[in-house]
């Protein structure tokens, strides 16, 4: 296998913005339905886990359970927003709707299409985070103004999960098979990234593995520091991890999709 082929830097052009706009237009056609989950989901989780389960938990790391999981809820929705858009969403557009085929018959290139899809996936994360913030703020669970930094950060983190999903879309033999990486990677990540209990209760080796390979761990660390209003220099290390992995996944996913689609 020629590894270099997957590391070729994609050409970035304004064509990607046109693909992004196409997806945004479709999203806005069903705006009412699409805007609902980011409002409803945090409410459900906060009531069930924060205020229900939380009754039995005095405090975690010196804060109430609801306050502890609030940043996790935002992080998880950042992950899901981009991941589902660029896995199931992109696969449907690519395979069933042939949208990509139609677009590459115009001056746009396949790279424009994939970059546009990735940017749109990241935008979904940004939209989710932005809509959730006021709901959670209503319960007094997050620090303002630090938490406002979550909005731009959601785009960066979203781009990482979009790239991850796009790599899966590039190799999945059919739509059902997308379930495997979800079961084996996304769901464990959802549970073991310091989301609903602190990472440090896990065996040390598992903690290191989580930090090494689970992007959500770093996302939760950053978002939690922001909602707690206690950012520190250690966040730069997490940010660096995210930027590097995001960049690699971005480049590799575009090349993997090119390999799948150029025949």
């Amino acid at each position: 296998m020629n590894v270099g082929m997957y590391l070729k830097m994609p050409k970035l052009t304004s064509g990607a913005i046109k693909v992004w706009r196409r997806n945004k237009d479709v999203f806005m056609k069903n705006a009412k339905l699409n805007f609902l989950p980011p409002f409803i989901e945090p409410l459900l989780y906060l009531f069930a886990m924060g205020f229900g389960l939380g009754l039995f938990i005095e405090e975690i790391d010196g804060v109430s359970y609801a306050k502890f999981i609030a940043p996790a809820l935002i992080s998880v929705s950042v992950m899901y927003g981009a991941f589902f858009e660029c896995s199931y969403g992109s696969y449907v557009r690519m395979y069933y709707q042939k949208t990509f085929d139609a677009i590459i018959a115009t001056p746009l290139s396949i790279e424009d299409v994939i970059v546009g899809e990735l940017l749109w996936g990241a935008t979904r994360s940004l939209i989710s985070a932005t809509l959730m913030l006021p709901v959670i703020a209503l319960f007094g669970l997050i620090d303002i103004p630090y938490s406002l930094l979550i909005i731009p950060f959601a785009f960066l983190a979203g781009l990482l999960f979009a790239g991850l999903a796009m790599c899966i879309t590039a190799v999945t033999p059919n739509i059902m098979s997308i379930n495997y990486p979800i079961l084996l990677f996304i769901t464990p990540m959802f549970l073991f990234s310091g989301t609903f209990f602190p990472l440090n209760v896990l065996p040390e080796i598992i903690q290191y593995i989580a930090l090494a390979v689970l992007p959500l761990t770093h996302v939760v660390m950053i978002i939690r520091s922001l909602t707690f209003g206690t950012p520190g220099l250690f966040l730069l290390w997490h940010l660096l991890w995210i930027v590097v992995v995001c960049f690699i996944l971005f480049v590799v996913s575009v090349n993997m999709m090119k390999k799948r689609l150029v025949i």
Binding site: K18, R22, D25, V26, Q97, A102, I103, A105, T106
Partner: peptide, 29 residues
């Protein structure tokens, strides 16, 4: 591709859009 029009073997119209929107969205490309 700027000067070319393509009618592919398989209709790949955009099912997320109306007839009018299909053409308008395409014009942006």
């Amino acid at each position: 591709k700027f000067w070319m029009g393509v009618v592919p073997q398989e209709n790949n119209l955009d099912p997320d859009f109306t007839v009018y929107e299909n053409l308008l969205v395409f014009s942006r490309y």
